[in-house]
Amino acid sequence: LAITGGITDIVALDEAVKNAGGVISVNDTCLGARPFSERTQEKPDPFQAVAERLLKWRSPCARFSEGEFRSNGEVDATVFVAPKFCDFYDFVRPKDGKSVYRIELDYPINSQGQLSTRIGALMEKNSVRSVSPSKEGIKMLFAGVDSGSTTTNAVLIDREGRIIFSKTLKTGVRASNTAEALIAEMTEVASKEGKRIGKCVSTGYGRLLVSSASDRITEISCHARGVFELFPEARGIIDVGGQDSKVIRLSPDGNVDDFAMNDKCAAGTGRFLEVTAAALELEIDEMALMARKRNKDISISSVCTVFAESEVVSLIGMGERIENISSGLFRAIAKRVGAMYSRLGSPVPLVFTGGVARNSGVVDALKELFGTEIIVPEAPEIVGAFGAALIARDSVVED
């Protein structure tokens, strides 16, 4: 990877790239080792010579350049980094002809999980996915484990892709223990079938913690694989989980064309629903039923979960109907996701995955906002684990 753009915590970024199995071969950030194109010329005044070299022959910081990015030609993709909400850095984009992906970073970088997911998905998108092929017999089953922030999902499939077993557990404070318990249960199921697990692929924020997994793939690639298997006609995916939301655009052959994620914020996620439902003293499913009885539209302006909770409390104090508030909250989520969806070109047909897809209030709000039908799988929460199991199967060569 080549890294360019504004000032960034290169140590944290380098760690994320390393965890995803990549290498930063060019660092063109403002604090990075930007390359020189010429040697320092010999002159009577050495200070003058060094100053000319710095000003004339060093690749400029992206903050001061006009978008020209010079690399050594040995990169698979370029990551353009911009500080969050800082337009001063954001007016420059690299023009080196390579695949370019833009990310925004806050300071300090304290969300390594999300950053690693972005970098890993970028590498997988550019066909540098690290999945080791193996050769196994035909009496194999294949496992996928999606270790998320709220729940952990497990799926076991056979060679034909049929689901033999699936289960969802609360992740809890020991994500690795929850994942390993599910793998142990799948191993027992495989044994009763007279087979064994040939390969296990983990995904989700806790994917690196699943020690029994053979490979670790981002949830973006796994949701894409699972959706394409179930709905080959799909071109767009919305995945809303407990702590983040993603929108993915698929190519006709099922590969990830592009994707967008929310930035370290629970707005538009399952956590947002939990917090606001508690403020209304309702179960989330009750909110969905009440939202259908609204008699006017209320706008929840706060995109922050904490501020939205305060806004809900204020609306209750003003005597606003719970039905209208519930509807406003669902539409707030839809708008948050809709911004990312529009940015990717509003691809259709559209599939909604993740546990929040079971909530009819969110589905109705998205349909109303997008003006299109939305496909919801029978078990939307296991699509990522299903995709991970399919990737495990696809990488095994039969004897």
Score class of each variant (00 low, 15 high):
residue 81 V to K: 13
residue 137 G to A: 07
residue 184 A to G: 07
residue 349 P to A: 03
residue 292 R to E: 00
residue 48 Q to W: 02
residue 251 S to Q: 13
residue 309 E to S: 09
residue 163 I to D: 10
residue 360 S to K: 13
residue 387 G to N: 12
residue 356 V to D: 11
residue 385 A to K: 15
residue 277 A to T: 04
residue 284 I to M: 11
residue 292 R to L: 07
residue 365 A to H: 06
residue 338 G to P: 07
residue 324 N to Y: 04
residue 371 G to T: 05
residue 67 G to M: 12
residue 31 L to S: 14
residue 29 T to D: 05
residue 354 G to V: 00
residue 110 N to Q: 13
residue 243 Q to D: 03
residue 159 R to H: 02
residue 122 L to F: 11
residue 61 C to P: 02
residue 45 D to H: 00
residue 359 N to R: 12
residue 299 S to C: 00
residue 49 A to I: 01
residue 279 A to P: 06
residue 61 C to T: 14
residue 128 V to R: 14
residue 142 F to L: 02
residue 273 L to N: 05
residue 348 V to K: 01
residue 148 G to D: 09
residue 63 R to C: 07
residue 119 I to Q: 04
residue 132 S to Q: 09
residue 385 A to Y: 11
residue 96 D to Q: 06
residue 173 V to K: 01
residue 233 E to I: 04
residue 206 G to W: 03
residue 105 L to P: 15
residue 159 R to W: 05
residue 123 M to S: 06
residue 367 K to M: 09
residue 10 I to C: 09
residue 374 I to H: 11
residue 74 E to A: 08
residue 133 P to Q: 05
residue 183 I to L: 10
residue 312 V to H: 10
residue 340 M to Y: 02
residue 193 E to F: 08
residue 153 N to C: 02
residue 371 G to P: 02
residue 364 D to H: 07
residue 191 S to V: 04
residue 191 S to R: 15
residue 196 R to I: 01
residue 321 R to N: 13
residue 391 I to W: 11
residue 80 F to S: 12
residue 51 A to C: 00
residue 92 V to H: 01
residue 297 D to G: 03
residue 172 G to A: 09
residue 124 E to Q: 13
residue 262 N to D: 14
residue 67 G to Y: 10
residue 99 S to L: 04
residue 342 S to Q: 02
residue 146 D to H: 12
residue 171 T to D: 08
